[in-house]
Computed example of a mutant assay.
Amino acid sequence: MEKHSQRPEPKNLNSVWRFLRRCLFSVLSFGPMPKHIAFIMDGNRRYAKKMQIKEGSGHNVGFTSLVSSLQYCYEMGVKYVTVYAFSIDNFKRKPEEVGSLMHLMKEKIDQLLEEESIVHKFGLKLNFWGSLDLLPEPIRSAAEKAMVHTANNTGPVLSICVAYTSTNEILRAINKSCARFEDKTGEGSDPANSILVTDLEENLDSASCSEPDIVIRTSGETRLSNFLLWQSTFSHLQSPNLFWPEFSLRHLIWSILEYQKVYPYLEARRKLCQES
């Protein structure tokens, strides 16, 4: 007599889970939805220590958490996601740790370009923000290849901040603005009273993206750590008390609900600023 398993097929479970997510996101969309969410992915090393796993393994788990979070964001219609992957200040860590992180970064960038990756699934456009010239050659080449490979994609945008700090981004934008001013007016011209805020914003790494509606930093830290300082004037800053590898759908849903709760206040402040 043939035996029949009582367990649903994994494929069917995935279909049911996707359907439930669509229902949940549909309900969530009755409120104002963010167009741009930025993540400071903090706590990978502390997660590894907490779980007593090999040092560096926390970043692998963190990448899995990132891919899941990206999928949920894009399924609910978020157009832009920006992540803080590696600060310029991180180069001050132990050489072996920096080397390990660079190797992992190259591996993950290559994975993003694989046929079955989230990039192909959603038609993502990849940006890399920061002083890429500070990166080792294999990493810089991989980042440049990823940007060229996805330049014509019309889906959501994933911006990855590497060798990045906000003050460095602003400094580079000032230098670019001054250089463009001199190209137009000739050398020796003084740009001090001629460069506008709009000129500076056009030369920021984030020029092609809207400002983040939500900035989430995990591990309970309340500092921006030199991340998107210019762009986050009207962002809703959140600091959930968990490590980045532990960040899940329920935390993302809660973040959006918190944003929807304060949205009227944020919009009022934004309009007031625009009128003044």
Score class of each variant (00 low, 15 high):
1 M>S: 10
2 E>H: 08
3 K>D: 01
4 H>N: 05
7 R>G: 02
7 R>F: 06
11 K>T: 09
12 N>E: 15
15 S>D: 13
15 S>G: 11
16 V>H: 04
16 V>L: 15
17 W>I: 14
17 W>H: 11
17 W>Y: 10
18 R>A: 14
21 R>C: 07
21 R>L: 13
27 V>P: 01
29 S>W: 00
34 P>S: 12
35 K>E: 05
37 I>L: 05
38 A>Y: 00
38 A>G: 00
43 G>C: 06
45 R>C: 03
47 Y>K: 10
47 Y>P: 00
48 A>Y: 00
48 A>R: 07
48 A>C: 03
50 K>Y: 03
50 K>V: 01
53 I>Y: 06
54 K>S: 05
60 N>D: 13
60 N>F: 06
61 V>I: 03
64 T>E: 11
65 S>R: 13
68 S>P: 00
69 S>D: 01
70 L>W: 07
75 E>H: 05
79 K>D: 00
81 V>K: 14
82 T>E: 01
84 Y>Q: 07
90 N>C: 07
93 R>K: 15
93 R>Q: 12
93 R>V: 03
96 E>W: 02
97 E>L: 15
101 L>H: 09
101 L>P: 04
105 M>L: 14
106 K>T: 09
107 E>S: 09
108 K>F: 01
108 K>D: 01
110 D>A: 12
112 L>K: 14
113 L>A: 06
118 I>R: 14
121 K>W: 02
124 L>F: 03
128 F>A: 14
131 S>E: 07
133 D>G: 01
137 E>H: 12
138 P>D: 03
141 S>E: 14
141 S>C: 10
147 M>F: 06
148 V>C: 07
148 V>N: 10
151 A>D: 11
153 N>M: 11
154 T>K: 15
156 P>E: 08
157 V>D: 05
158 L>Y: 06
162 V>Q: 09
165 T>F: 01
166 S>P: 00
166 S>H: 04
168 N>G: 10
170 I>W: 01
171 L>M: 15
174 I>T: 09
180 R>C: 06
180 R>G: 02
181 F>A: 11
181 F>I: 04
182 E>Q: 11
183 D>N: 13
185 T>C: 14
190 D>C: 13
195 I>R: 12
196 L>Q: 15
199 D>H: 12
199 D>F: 06
200 L>N: 05
201 E>C: 13
202 E>V: 04
205 D>I: 02
206 S>D: 01
207 A>P: 00
209 C>R: 13
209 C>Y: 01
209 C>G: 02
211 E>H: 09
211 E>D: 11
215 V>Q: 06
221 E>H: 05
221 E>D: 10
224 L>R: 10
225 S>F: 00
226 N>F: 05
229 L>Q: 13
230 W>E: 05
231 Q>K: 15
233 T>C: 12
234 F>L: 05
234 F>V: 02
236 H>C: 06
238 Q>V: 02
240 P>G: 04
241 N>C: 08
242 L>H: 04
243 F>G: 07
244 W>I: 07
246 E>N: 10
247 F>K: 08
249 L>H: 03
250 R>N: 12
251 H>C: 07
253 I>M: 12
255 S>K: 08
257 L>R: 15
258 E>G: 03
258 E>W: 02
260 Q>T: 04
261 K>S: 05
264 P>F: 01
267 E>F: 00
268 A>T: 08
268 A>F: 03
268 A>S: 11
274 Q>A: 15
276 S>C: 12
276 S>W: 08
